[in-house]
């Protein structure tokens, strides 16, 4: 038979666990939102990915 005794201490432990759980979920949300904004602020990003992109080659200014 399951132990059903619900002591006040269980309520307090539950409040701690729930609180910490919510804080962690909120932290994940904050880091995600921050990442999205920071990446958007970088502007257009492109790099060499095995294909030559002539527009990325810096042309030496004419001497």
């Amino acid at each position: 038979m399951a132990i059903r005794a619900e002591h006040e201490i269980h309520t307090r432990r539950f409040s701690r666990n729930l609180g910490l759980g919510l804080v962690l979920v909120a932290f994940v949300g904050v880091v995600f939102a921050l990442t999205v904004v920071k990446v958007q602020q970088l502007g257009a990003v492109q790099g060499f990915d095995h294909v030559l992109r002539p527009e990325m080659i810096q042309v030496e200014s004419a001497k």
């Binding site: 201490i9 309520t11 307090r12 432990r13 409040s15 701690r16 729930l18 609180g19 910490l20």
Partner: peptide
Amino acid sequence: EAEFGDYV
């Protein structure tokens, strides 16, 4: 034992 509010 502390509850969540105590840490707050």
